[in-house]
């Protein structure tokens, strides 16, 4: 990469995006964190002074279950998305360019329909009178009295459905740059196609996998609409709780405390992995110079 001699040029170029992020991301996040330490107002507003009320409230006995459920649903959805996307990306990258464009169009086609409408469509599909249920029953895969809707399973299926394209895109972007002669080389050296896939392809696209992980896991942890529509009372996620605190209880500090918790749960592991990556990177280049 070309390095600018004048440092202010670099600053000038970074300024717009930095300003945007500060205004619409960093400042709102700080406000959310701050509200968590405020008392709740009587009319749903924010009271005067500072208190640890909302933080103490996080110890509520109903929360651990919700947090645990949020985490396992998100992690499983992410894992399934990555697991399904990687072979798709591999296959896509090997298609002739013309066909690849059509396939990419098919993958982003769902985005043309509103997100909420697609979730409601799933509600019809999974409904006890819906044709998906009917098809599964007639195939003998589920019992006629099974309930497919309003549980964690339904949330999981719709989460995977929603975030699969988001997982495919970054993995495909990495796979497209992957040097497939490495697969030939592994095959040439006696490795089966499966072995070559796992020992050469998967490590080769790990940056894409990491991006996909972030892109799926973070929104999945914060999902609200999906569990609200296809989930039930026994399958609440943190997002629903935050919404409930905001709109039903009109207790913004409680909602903020929960949001802050979620934000930290995402930010801390991300920071650690980024710092780790940075350190490995500088170590490598440092070693080269020496």
């Amino acid at each position: 990469m070309k390095k600018h001699n004048k440092p202010y040029v670099e600053w000038l170029l970074t300024l717009p995006s930095l300003g945007w992020l500060t205004l619409f991301f960093i400042i709102p996040t700080i406000i959310v964190f701050a509200i968590a330490f405020k008392p709740a107002g009587v009319n749903g507003g924010i009271g005067e002074g500072w208190t640890l009320e909302s933080i103490r409230n996080l110890a509520q006995p109903s929360y651990p279950e919700i947090i645990f459920r949020t985490i396992w649903i998100s992690v499983v959805a992410t894992a399934v998305c990555l697991f399904l996307s990687t072979p798709v990306a591999y296959w896509l990258a090997l298609q002739p360019p013309q066909r690849r464009q059509w396939l990419m169009l098919l993958i982003i086609l769902p985005f043309w329909t509103n997100f909420l409408i697609r979730i409601f469509a799933w509600k019809t599909l999974l409904h006890s009178e819906g044709w998906l249920k009917y098809a599964l029953v007639s195939l003998g895969l589920v019992s006629p009295d099974a309930i497919l809707l309003y549980n964690s399973g339904a949330i999981l299926v719709v989460l995977i459905y929603t975030y699969l394209p988001f997982a495919i895109l970054p993995i495909y972007a990495a796979a497209e740059k992957f040097d497939f002669s490495l697969i030939d080389a592994a095959h040439d050296l006696g490795a089966s196609r499966i072995h070559a896939f796992f020992s050469i392809f998967v490590p080769g696209i790990r940056t894409g996998l990491f991006t996909a992980l972030m892109v799926v896991l973070i929104p999945a942890l914060g999902s609200y609409a999906i569990p609200d529509i296809v989930g039930g009372a026994s399958s609440e996620m943190i997002g629903n709780k935050i919404a409930q605190r905001t709109f039903v209880d009109r207790n913004l500090p409680h909602a903020s405390a929960l949001s802050a918790c979620l934000a930290l749960a995402v930010l801390i592991p991300m920071m650690i992995s980024l710092i780790g990556r940075d350190r490995r990177f500088t170590k490598k280049t440092g070693g080269k110079k020496a």
Binding site: S181, A185, D188, P203
Partner: peptide
């Protein structure tokens, strides 16, 4: 026979060395 079952090995044009492995591991792969 597929490539992995043949008594034939190849030196590829762009070398196709596995970038995530050391020289030693590359040679040991087969």
């Amino acid at each position: 026979l597929p490539a992995n079952k043949r008594p034939i090995n190849t030196v590829f044009q762009n070398y196709a060395l596995f970038p995530n492995m050391t020289v030693w591991d590359n040679i040991a792969f087969g």
